[in-house]
Design a protein around this nucleic acid. Structure first.
Lengths: 187, 187
DNA sequence: ACTTACATGTAACGAGTTACATGATTGC
DNA sequence: GCAATCATGTAACTCGTTACATGTAAGT
């Protein structure tokens, strides 16, 4: 118990500061969405299990009555243990590439539309990451005590940027090749 | 029914040529592993459902008695319908980036080890893709009738190569930054 | 007063993995 | 004859999503 990926993520978020379940999901959505996701349906049961296991404790918030979850000493230790375990590889499932592999069934036009849509998603991703980068840098300027933490955050943003730029470069190549395939068909 | 991602993949593989469940999994492992995965526990139930729905039919193999699954007309049509639906986005879950985001908990040395390991995985991936590329090109030379199909296959290989190279470039940047963080700690 | 955001939970379902059980075929 | 590979399937389990149900707090 207290072993899942969700529990790892929840403990990690609580290491920043005690918060509500709702705010955990907020942070995951706003800061980690490029490489992580959680739903309420996972977070609340995870919080219950973690509390059960003595890894977190709950105190009612000062002004609001909402439940603030914070790490216990055991929780902090368990978090370090989990972080030290090798990351579990996500099972790959890329619907765009699956369709492209069987591309002669759909034909070059439909494939080009898929690739174009993927390219646009990556461009949006890149813009989002630029905004996130600006936010994090502003935060660093505002609170220099967080400087170390924000350097790690920027590493994850850079990873997203590299990936998005690669996806865009590939998409351009693929669109050229697909145009060529279509020209060949109509010859 | 006959709606899952697995069923799509199974139908798509059967569009190449009729085969056994075992061989479907082989092909997914050898050709699609960079962007797709299936397990026996999914494939056989999926085949049963597809047969039930009249989308595939089973004939005993000529020499071996093993079950050869082939698309029916309805199956071919359903496959085209499924391919035309927008791809479902995979939920992101990158354990390396999660650990890096909370990198000050692990410290720069442990983070560097994670990044280094990720880099090596990408390098292996790149080598595998180069091998796959050679194989596909050999196949194209051997059977020119497959030329169109292999061009689509090469598109998916190129996608993997772009992604892997981006991951390696990022890893090098990240390792430099982590070395700097470590130097800062020991100052 | 009303709407929007904050907040907590549960239940039903779907998807996928792993481990197990079983047996045929083929190469040595 | 024996090992490895090919082949098929099931059952238990884990993980995660979605939809639902419910209520509070804050802004306008």
């Amino acid at each position: 118990m207290a072993n899942s990926q969700t529990e790892l993520a929840v403990l990690a978020v609580l290491s920043i500061r005690p918060t509500t379940g709702y705010a955990i999901r907020e942070l995951v959505h706003e800061r980690l969405s490029a490489f992580w996701s959680e739903s309420f349906g996972q977070i609340y049961p995870a919080l219950a299990r973690l509390r059960e296991a003595g890894l977190i404790e709950v105190t009612p918030g000062e002004r609001t009555g909402s439940a603030l979850h914070s790490l216990t000493d055991a929780g902090r230790e368990h978090l370090l243990d989990m972080l030290s375990e090798p990351p579990v590889a996500a099972r790959p499932r890329n619907g765009v590439l699956l369709r492209l592999f069987f591309g002669d069934l759909l034909g070059p036009r439909a494939c080009a539309a898929l690739v174009q849509a993927a390219k646009e998603r990556s461009e949006r991703q890149l813009a989002d990451l630029a905004a996130a980068r600006a936010e994090v840098e502003a935060e660093r300027a505002a609170d220099p005590a967080d400087a170390t933490r924000t350097r790690y955050w920027l590493l994850t943003i850079a990873a997203g940027e590299h990936a998005a730029r690669a996806a865009i470069a590939w998409a351009d190549e693929a669109l050229a090749e697909l145009a060529d395939l279509e020209a060949g068909e109509n010859r």
